[in-house]
């Protein structure tokens, strides 16, 4: 199984049982995860994003046991953000970047985000857009961050033929029109972390197919077992199960390598 949504370092509001990288890696291995795309909690609020990404890359090398793939943070509201993106690509050799528009104070219609997408597409970097980090109802009263509206992604992706986006922590329901539009956009993949409801993946696959759905645990903030148990609860056909667990990410990565070659 490939997990497209894990974090290293410390969640700002609580110590988490698995927020030491070695403990997280052990838990992921227990669940059969062979590769996990890791961002950094520090990327939410730190301004020295270059330092965040440097530490992330080092932690993945030191503790990752070949399993953790670093995904750097880029904040397009910071001065000289293209240099952060360049370092992610050229120095840390990351396959993608992760953005937190709500924590960084912009919407997806912002021209700075469009410029970031242009540069990421030019470099064949995958862009992970994080919709939310936690239930809006339980946030710290002094740090209330509404979820990102992902609807503009449909048009943004349509205008950039080589761009690939992975949407993380979107609370989309199987019957949502937006889920269908995002899937039909063709180069947007959606992770399972905040898909909720009984047998939700069974209903999502029935609604939009399995091709654009990828596993995301949102560990260590979320209990990592949830990702695997959602697949178990769904009772999917073997082909759909394999696609969501691993195949779709391999296709996504394969298409990236083809563009780089």
């Amino acid at each position: 199984m490939i997990d497209t949504n894990v974090y290293l370092s410390c969640w700002p509001f609580r110590r988490l049982p698995l927020d030491e990288p070695a403990a997280l890696v052990a838990a992921l291995k227990r669940l059969g995860v062979t590769q996990a795309w890791a961002g950094s909690f520090d990327g939410l609020l730190h301004r020295d994003v270059a330092g965040v990404n440097l530490r992330l890359a080092a932690a993945c090398r030191t503790h990752g046991e070949g399993l953790l793939i670093p995904i750097g943070t880029v904040n397009p509201t910071l001065p000289d953000w293209p240099e952060d993106l360049r370092r992610c690509h050229e120095e840390h050799e990351m396959p993608g970047i992760r953005v937190h528009p709500n924590y960084h104070g912009y919407r997806l219609g912002d021209p700075r985000f469009a410029a970031l997408l242009d540069e990421a597409a030019r470099r064949s970097l995958i862009v992970q857009v994080v919709v939310a980090m936690e239930d809006e109802r339980t946030q710290h009263p002094l740090v209330r961050v509404p979820p990102v509206d992902p609807a503009p992604l449909v048009a943004l992706v349509a205008r950039r033929s080589s761009l690939r986006v992975v949407l993380l922590n979107a609370s989309l329901k199987p019957a949502d029109v937006l889920l269908r539009k995002l899937v039909e956009a063709g180069r947007i993949w959606i992770d399972t972390a905040m898909m909720e409801g009984i047998s939700v993946l069974e209903r999502v696959v029935a609604a939009v197919g399995s091709e654009r759905i990828v596993v995301g645990s949102h560990a260590p903030f979320f209990a990592p077992d949830a990702a695997l148990l959602k697949l178990q609860e769904a009772g999917l056909k073997e082909a759909d199960h394999r696609a969501i667990a691993e195949g779709n990410v391999r296709s996504l990565m394969g298409s990236r390598r083809e563009r780089e070659d």
């Binding site: 009984i198 077992d225 178990q232 609860e233």
Partner: peptide, 8 residues
């Protein structure tokens, strides 16, 4: 909610 997320 799902059984999965809550059992987890």
């Amino acid at each position: 909610r799902g059984f999965a997320s809550q059992l987890a």
